[in-house]
Design a protein around this nucleic acid. Structure first.
Lengths: 201, 201
DNA sequence: GTCTATAACGAGATAGAC
DNA sequence: GTCTATCTCGTTATAGAC
């Protein structure tokens, strides 16, 4: 019962954020209403506005990419492929709710679109620097596209098998794709957990 | 000038459909308003409703997948990979506006979601039958995911390089991925136009 | 007084009456 | 083929609880 006013407020704020995360990631930006968020959080619509200024602000608070959490990309093409694959496997293992909000909204909401675009551009640039080939930029884009498609298929489209497949199995099947796109040895079926080897061929 | 009433109506209907196709594919379902469609088609919002019953019905009229236009899938794993790759290359070459409407809305609109889901399920089933491996279903899902990601990256995200890359170059880079996922020889860099060869290994 | 809940406003949408 | 009633949205103003 020792819940001070400010403590109470903190909790309400947290409930709202949590509800917003859920709804934005489940329905996307336009189909998520402030009112629904408020109901879900057992709070008042007016409160949501008071705490978070606007729907737009609430969304960008929820859907923010932590660039620093992303792995740095570099090394040989095969290493780049491994790094990306490991990153994908992580995302497949833990279901990143905030990222899903972004993904689901990216096709219809301008800010989400900008954010995703900025993210892939940054990743793309780092990859392009690491991949020595002449068509490195295209390779980098395709790597991003494959990751995007995989995440989408699992969490948003909910493809029947992909939805429940163990991340390791997915990563294993994708490994030669990543290797080929990165320009390493295309047919190199090597264990994705091993990151300590020189590029073959 | 010999435009009868019914002919006039036909033209208006066509203008509305064309406008709807454009707007749905550019903005997605929720951000496309009947008013905007009407304005774009130089018609009255009420007319749009009169001709097409509802926004929902207009959308499903615009975004319908012609299943029969899709290639039949079968043969050896390598042939399946080639067929899919050729299909992807076609889509990369001609920018399918109706499909884009579906894609852009699939993450936020239930019916679009169902339609896409039904489509990938059908494709998935046909692929699964053709791929002999034990984990064929997962492979099929991943093939679908890669195609989805590539289309998304080119048309909707507009990744800088992928956006303007020639379809042949994209297909060439993707070829080993498709081969590996289909379970053919993973490193088999063969010309994608050649569909007359037995599965290696 | 500060924090919360209720009510209302204006914009914009769909859909049905005219 | 046009017009307008009704709904719901995001948001703001107002009244009440601690």
């Amino acid at each position: 019962m020792a819940t001070s006013r400010t403590e109470q407020r903190r909790q309400t704020e947290r409930r709202i954020l949590s509800a917003a995360r859920r709804l934005f990631s489940e329905r996307g930006y336009e189909r998520t209403t402030i009112r629904a968020v408020a109901t879900e959080a057992a709070a008042d619509p007016g409160l949501v506005m008071r705490y978070f200024e606007s729907k737009e602000a609430l969304f960008s608070r929820v859907a923010r990419i932590d660039m620093d959490a992303e792995p740095s990309i570099g090394g040989s093409p095969a290493e780049v492929a491994d790094t990306l694959l490991a990153s994908l496997r992580d995302k497949l293992a833990k279901e990143p709710e905030a990222a899903l909000a972004l993904l689901r909204s990216m096709l219809t909401h301008p800010e989400a679109s900008r954010e995703v675009h900025a993210y892939v551009s940054a990743q793309q640039r780092r990859m392009t620097d690491a991949l020595p080939q002449d068509n490195a930029a295209l390779r980098a884009d395709l790597l991003g596209a494959v990751m995007l498609g995989t995440l989408l298929g699992r969490y948003l489209i909910r493809m029947e098998t992909l939805q429940d497949a163990p991340p390791e199995e997915i990563a294993a099947l994708l490994s030669p794709c990543f290797q080929a796109l990165a320009g390493g040895a295309p047919g190199d079926f090597h264990d994705t957990a091993a990151e300590d080897h020189a590029p073959p061929r």
